[in-house]
Simulated assay, not measured.
Amino acid sequence: MRHDVNKQKIIITGASAGIGQKLAWHTAISGGIPILLARSTDKLERIQQDIINEIHTNCFIYSVDITDEKALANTMEHIIADHGQIHAIINNAGMGIFEYVQDMNWQSMERMFQLNVLATMRLSQIMLNHFSTVRSGHIINIASQAAKIATPKSSVYAASKSAVIGFTNALRMEAASEGIYVTSVNLGPVRTNFFQTADPTGNYVKSVQAYMLDPDHVAKKVISYLFTNKREINMPWWMEFGSKLYQLSPRIMECLFRKQFSKK
């Protein structure tokens, strides 16, 4: 497998804003060909035109709700028919809602799992079969540090991202013999519109804004590891260090950092 992005076709989900938009830019800057998926046609078209005009490279867009299994299957068929061999997919699309379990409606819980987990699994399955034909490819799944340190009000979101990490870890071992790389990206809070839905009050953002990650920096780092055998990308480093301590002594960590864990 080649270890550069030049002329490689990269599918990116949730590409109309935030990390997904930045992933599209850094794919194009690195010489790759971004293939962007999201629901908003207007936003995708603006990003496509900006990339074509400013970076002078091809960029392709497909408007689809990836939680609609039939629509997703049809779109993936079209993508493969249009472009032939795809080289990587970054399953970036996701959402969060920060509420106590007893206050959250069931539809919100279902929506998080449909988008964060089931759509990621279905796309990974489709692309795994596609990559197997040439024994090459890379699947990158965007998870979260919340999966490693679950905190109040993030119970369902953390559960969905825990599922992503568990799925990714097993898939990595299954795909290794096919020459396919599988990577999880575990992020702390990132400065994007994710929190407009997750935290509409703005209280959590106010408490963590000093150490929120820059989406441009995140995207650049993720793209830099494309087509390399990277198990995990963990950001920020100090949160990953904290998660390792938490795994060793969860009771002590929960007592020591109770106030910090309850900032939502």
Rank of each mutant, 00 (worst) to 15 (best):
residue 79 I to P: 07
residue 205 V to T: 09
residue 74 N to S: 14
residue 67 T to A: 03
residue 167 F to Q: 05
residue 68 D to Q: 04
residue 159 A to I: 08
residue 22 K to Y: 08
residue 44 L to P: 13
residue 199 D to H: 05
residue 115 L to P: 12
residue 229 N to K: 10
residue 191 R to M: 12
residue 11 I to L: 06
residue 251 R to C: 08
residue 30 S to E: 13
residue 107 Q to I: 09
residue 86 I to G: 11
residue 143 A to S: 15
residue 157 Y to A: 10
residue 92 N to H: 06
residue 158 A to L: 05
residue 174 E to Q: 12
residue 258 R to T: 10
residue 215 P to S: 00
residue 41 T to W: 09
residue 237 W to G: 07
residue 219 A to N: 00
residue 4 D to E: 10
residue 56 H to E: 11
residue 140 I to V: 14
residue 191 R to E: 15
residue 257 F to A: 10
residue 77 E to I: 05
residue 252 I to S: 11
residue 235 M to H: 03
residue 94 G to F: 06
residue 88 A to E: 05
residue 145 Q to M: 13
residue 206 K to D: 04
residue 49 Q to R: 13
residue 152 P to W: 01
residue 148 K to H: 15
residue 103 D to K: 11
residue 62 Y to P: 08
residue 11 I to G: 02
residue 118 L to D: 02
residue 89 I to L: 06
residue 19 I to Q: 02
residue 62 Y to M: 07
residue 4 D to R: 03
residue 94 G to W: 00
residue 5 V to E: 03
residue 93 A to P: 13
residue 141 N to F: 10
residue 249 S to C: 09
residue 68 D to S: 07
residue 264 K to T: 15
residue 228 T to Y: 01
residue 132 S to F: 11
residue 253 M to C: 14
residue 103 D to Q: 12
residue 204 Y to F: 13
residue 22 K to S: 12
residue 92 N to A: 09
residue 264 K to A: 15
residue 46 R to T: 14
residue 245 L to M: 13
residue 214 D to R: 00
residue 127 M to L: 15
residue 152 P to I: 02
residue 18 G to N: 02
residue 63 S to M: 03
residue 200 P to D: 03
residue 56 H to M: 05
residue 61 I to T: 14
residue 28 A to M: 07
residue 100 Y to M: 03
residue 233 I to N: 01
residue 209 Q to I: 08
residue 62 Y to W: 10
residue 40 S to Y: 06
residue 75 T to D: 10
residue 46 R to C: 12
residue 10 I to F: 01
residue 4 D to M: 09
residue 118 L to T: 12
residue 136 S to W: 13
residue 68 D to N: 13
residue 198 A to Q: 06
residue 244 K to M: 02
residue 223 I to K: 04
residue 37 L to V: 01
residue 149 I to V: 15
residue 117 V to F: 12
residue 36 L to P: 11
residue 88 A to S: 08
residue 103 D to S: 12
residue 233 I to S: 02
residue 67 T to R: 07
residue 241 F to D: 08
residue 141 N to K: 09
residue 233 I to C: 02
residue 34 P to G: 01
residue 84 G to C: 05
residue 82 D to I: 01
residue 232 E to R: 00
residue 128 L to R: 15
residue 223 I to H: 03
residue 46 R to A: 13
residue 92 N to M: 09
residue 163 A to L: 06
residue 117 V to W: 07
residue 142 I to S: 03
residue 87 H to E: 15
residue 254 E to W: 04
residue 134 V to F: 02
residue 234 N to L: 11
residue 9 K to Q: 09
residue 37 L to R: 01
residue 263 K to V: 15
residue 183 T to L: 02
residue 73 A to K: 14
residue 48 Q to P: 10
residue 193 N to F: 00
residue 145 Q to H: 11
residue 73 A to P: 01
residue 217 H to T: 14
residue 31 G to D: 02
residue 57 T to E: 02
residue 98 F to C: 13
residue 179 G to K: 08
residue 36 L to H: 10
residue 169 N to Q: 15
residue 57 T to M: 10
residue 185 V to W: 05
residue 63 S to C: 05
residue 150 A to T: 14
residue 114 Q to W: 08
residue 135 R to E: 05
residue 98 F to D: 12
residue 251 R to P: 00
residue 80 I to W: 05
residue 65 D to T: 08
residue 145 Q to S: 13
residue 145 Q to R: 11
residue 259 K to M: 07
residue 28 A to I: 00
